[in-house]
Amino acid sequence: MSQTTQSRAAFAAAAERFAGPLYRQWCATAGAETGFDDRTFTAFAAYGVDFGDWHAAQRLLRATSLDLRLDDGEQALAAYFPVLDGTMAPDNRSYQLWTERLRDRRGPIGRLLQEHPLPRNDPAAGVRMFRLADRYLRDAFAGPVAVELVAVGAAAGLELVADSFEPDLFAGQHISARRGYDLHPLDARQPDVMQRMLAQLEPEEVDVQERILRAAQLVDEQDIVVSRRDAFDVVAAEGFGFGRLPIVFGSSFLCMVEERTRMDELMRARHAEGIWISAEVVGVLRAVTDDPALADTPAGAPALRLAHYRAGELLTEIVQVD
């Protein structure tokens, strides 16, 4: 298969992956192109874009979004991005503006493609995990519990304030501390960092953008710190969680580490009790549990797992497929 054919196939596949109309239209149009290849897309193979699957199209689209954001939305193309206050509906002109931007070999998109992308760090993932934790605390304990919330792979720590988006979460519980740990923590107060995080959004995800910005404001107001430390070292440290119930949680954390069972092993090794909650896709969670809820479920489906350990014993395991 030629590189041109591969690139068009990647865009055709990507058209089914996006929720919003703008990216879907662009990908469908690119996938349906025929005739001479003007290297609008295939030239980016030199920047490490592998057109083996639809993620190549996603990378180009996110680089485009970041380009617009760093240019303060001054380009005509920004008028089609609601997240940049654009109001125009997708049309052929938007596709032409985009491909013209890609043809500019001296433009910034090639450089942006070579930068390491930042996670969107949407606190919605934290809301899902906190709902499960809140329900379990109410069922498993007779009264209020002193809780320490510990986010691993925390990025900018936005999930640590997820309960602010549903005020009833943890009502009656005492949250003694909120801490985050990441090998590469992010400071969302830096405009450049925030723009790179928001570039992961689709153009129509205005509500998600507002939620992320609000969470970043709350993290700043509450002086929540994400420390540059290995999460496993934190949990293994003597005295971790002393005098309170640590709830360790992570979204897409296990998929980034080699030893996917290690957090369970560390929690089991502790004399005190603790709760470990992971939000992953089914295929990742199958490496740590054989819970029947994961059977006959697509590997890419989102799922949650809660494991409650005390004195070396797994007291409770809850697996929930969304």
Rank of each mutant, 00 (worst) to 15 (best):
S2D: 14
R8N: 03
A12S: 09
A13Q: 11
A14K: 02
E16P: 00
E16S: 07
F18Y: 14
G31H: 04
E33A: 10
T34V: 11
R39C: 09
T42A: 06
G48C: 12
V49P: 00
D53M: 04
W54E: 13
H55D: 07
L66K: 02
D72S: 07
A76F: 09
F81V: 08
T87V: 14
M88H: 08
A89Y: 06
D91T: 09
S94Y: 00
S94A: 13
E100W: 12
P108K: 09
G110S: 06
R111W: 04
R111Y: 04
H116P: 02
L118D: 00
P119D: 02
N121I: 14
G126Y: 01
A133T: 02
A133R: 02
Y136V: 05
A142S: 05
P144Q: 08
V147E: 03
L149I: 01
V150T: 10
A156W: 06
L158M: 10
V161W: 00
A162Y: 01
S164Y: 02
E166Y: 05
I175T: 06
A177E: 10
R179A: 12
D182V: 00
P185N: 06
D187T: 05
D187V: 06
V193Y: 10
M197D: 07
L198A: 14
E202H: 02
E205D: 10
D207Q: 03
I212A: 08
L213T: 13
Q217M: 12
V219P: 02
V225D: 06
S227F: 12
R229Q: 13
D230G: 14
F232S: 06
F240I: 10
F253N: 07
L254H: 09
E258Y: 13
E265P: 03
M267Q: 05
I277M: 04
S278L: 03
E280F: 04
G283V: 12
V284H: 14
R286V: 11
R286W: 06
A293Q: 15
P298W: 14
A303F: 01
G312N: 08
G312P: 03
V319E: 08
Q320K: 12
